[in-house]
Design a protein around this nucleic acid. Structure first.
Length: 343
DNA sequence: GGCCAGGTATAGC
DNA sequence: GCTATACATGGC
């Protein structure tokens, strides 16, 4: 049975699912979600009508965009559960109760963010499962989005628990316990030893104490504190910690700084960027795409909060997405201070 | 073969 | 606290 969900604000399903904030959605019928050619105008990649398959908690869901909202269908196991409010579950996952118009009016005060929003309207943050989000972003460490998808799917198979809609069979993402006592490195050689080891270690830690990933608890404190705590997991630094806080723990002002966001920020007015203590100013390092220290990433996040406001994380997602198709490599020799980029 | 990918940990200053 | 470097794998 297919059901409808009304969405009365900008909402681009394909963009929100495929841009690389989450890694387990697939187009139904395709073997894989292929990387889009983001450089083309939106008409080129907006699928409109195609079904997507994703696993939310225990359930398999298919969704597709329709005029005025979206349609969805679920597997039998979910259809039989009358205690589950699927529609509300989807509204929560897609953050449809966020007032995206209000978000836009906040973050588009910055002209660079404004351009990004105008180019990719309807890009939404998602509210992901914290443990899956954390494991996924450890996989994403210095890896392509495509490769990350493969690794996350391999971890999912560890649960050995499948759900299906028709021919579409997917795996439920395993609880930390399964991963903690698995040989992940053997299951996924492509993941690499260090990432596999970190994920297994984190799984054990979360199995013993899931409090750092508790959404309700995180909601009560400043995002900077949430991020700092996640930063303590092995193989997790400021960037991954910020991603989890933003995309799973409702810290909408968390601001992950990766290569792309750093490149995008270079286009912003950096006059208010703190100088930093190093030989080069923080602004210079950003303009020249030099590596930032952990402390400097936190300084940039604080700058972003001051500049973009309480929804700085939304601004960051638009900047991430906007930077990628431009594919401008770091400054490349025209930086008077640093010379050729060395990142 | 070289460069790149939604970074992090570590040694050395 | 900052800088440079190793790390591990696959795609182009």
């Amino acid at each position: 049975m297919t059901m409808r969900l009304v969405v009365d604000q900008p909402f681009d399903l394909a963009l929100s699912l495929e841009m690389g904030q989450t890694f387990r959605w697939r187009r139904v019928g395709d073997e894989d979600v292929r990387d889009r050619d983001w450089g083309h105008p939106p008409e080129r990649w907006r699928t409109g009508g195609g079904w997507y398959s994703g696993v939310l908690g225990e359930f398999l869901v298919h969704v597709r965009q329709m005029p005025g909202g979206m349609e969805y269908r679920v597997g039998d196991e979910a259809g039989e559960r009358e205690d589950i409010d699927l529609e509300q579950g989807l509204r929560d996952y897609f953050r449809l109760d966020d007032d995206i118009t209000a978000v836009y009016s906040e973050i588009t005060r910055d002209p660079v963010v404004k351009r990004a929003v105008e180019q990719y309207p309807g890009l939404r943050l998602l509210r992901q499962d914290p443990w899956e989000c954390l494991a996924s972003y450890v996989c994403s460490r210095v890896q392509s989005i495509r490769g990350t998808r493969g690794d996350v799917e391999t971890i999912a198979r560890l649960s050995r628990r499948t759900v299906r809609i028709g021919d579409d069979v997917r795996h439920v993402f395993p609880a930390p316990m399964f991963v903690a006592h698995s040989d992940l490195a053997a299951a996924d050689p492509g993941l690499g030893l260090s990432r596999a080891r970190d994920i297994v270690t984190i799984a054990g830690s979360v199995e013993r104490d899931a409090l750092p990933l508790d959404r309700a608890g995180a909601g009560a404190e400043p995002s900077a504190d949430v991020v700092r705590r996640l930063d303590g997991y092995p193989g997790v630094g400021p960037k991954i910690a910020s991603c989890v806080a933003l995309m799973a723990l409702d810290s909408l002002d968390a601001f992950p700084v990766d290569r792309w966001v750093q490149r995008a920020i270079a286009k912003c007015d950096l006059s208010e960027m703190p100088h930093g203590r190093g030989r080069r100013s923080l602004a210079e390092k950003i303009e020249c795409s030099l590596a930032l220290t952990d402390a400097q990433q936190y300084q940039v996040a604080a700058w972003a909060r001051a500049r973009f406001g309480a929804y700085a994380g939304y601004a960051g997602q638009y900047l991430f997405h906007w930077a990628e198709p431009h594919k401008e490599r770091a400054v490349r020799g025209d930086c008077p201070v640093c010379g050729p980029d060395r990142r």
